[in-house]
Design a protein around this nucleic acid. Sequence first.
DNA 1: GTAATTTACTTAACATCGCAAGTAATAAGG
DNA 2: CCTTATTACTTGCGATGTTAAGTAAATTAC
Lengths: 153, 153
Amino acid sequence: MSKTKPKNSANSGLRPTSRALPIALLRTREHIMEPIRPMLAEIGLTEQKWRVLRILTEIGPLEQTAIARHACLLLPSLTRILSRMEADGLIRRAQDPDDKRRSIVQISKQGSALIEAHQPFSNQVYRDLEKKYGREKLDLLLDMLEEIQEIKF
Amino acid sequence: MSKTKPKNSANSGLRPTSRALPIALLRTREHIMEPIRPMLAEIGLTEQKWRVLRILTEIGPLEQTAIARHACLLLPSLTRILSRMEADGLIRRAQDPDDKRRSIVQISKQGSALIEAHQPFSNQVYRDLEKKYGREKLDLLLDMLEEIQEIKF
DNA sequence: GTAATTTACTTAACATCGCAAGTAATAAGG
DNA sequence: CCTTATTACTTGCGATGTTAAGTAAATTAC
């Protein structure tokens, strides 16, 4: 008998990447996004701008720090993304009168129209996923992902 | 009775972002990576370089297209990343004699050493996650993520 | 066997990422 | 008050993301 189970030639005792959560999450996300990206490109949105618009639609006018947190963007990135989106008329920025450091960001009519235009496609993707993966399993997965996000490390 | 359930003031019939799989996967990944990034920075690796080294360790010498696929990187990014990693002595590139278009990439001793140095920390993170989330649930989650990646869209 | 196509990258250009440093406004401490 | 944090961004820089175009080698089609 050998001392331990013989490892893959090149592998030195690491978990396979398919079982490494950060990589598994990334690969899954890329797989899901593959059919979505062309649609976003069609309406001229990057993933990041799409997330910003979704957040603003969901929560309403918001300061940048909060947008960054919800959309998983860093403030420096958001600064540049928003100035472009403002120039393109997708959002508006207004200085907070009570705290002149803050600016409150709000989606524009044009931004809302983009999200609305994208919605049928988005719903279709979701139904397709439900159909191929299972509604209950998908719900369970989303629950599990939410639970992980609440863990304190 | 109102006709349909009254929506959130700003929301126009979209799934909440917490239940949108691409966003949920991204947020979960960011949450998991938060404690890992400082460690990678300490040994001078970006996430991308870390993934490349993990893939090369797991599979062995590989052509760039395959690395890109496994590590979720685009070829143009990989080109730059690899030339930097080669300059830093983490990998080696050799032209495939049977097909001079291809180059076969291989991890160096120094690259392997980095992965080994990172391994105790990586295992610690994984044990911590198992402890706080549950080993069986984590295994189930990884199974579910793998299953989604096999869906054809 | 040669032209057309495909494959495996590479280069270029511009947007975003991620860290660090800078700026202006507010809050806290003495 | 007035100095010293702290907060909410903004700017700068090098690395990466993303699309398009370019190059060289292999494959396919005639």
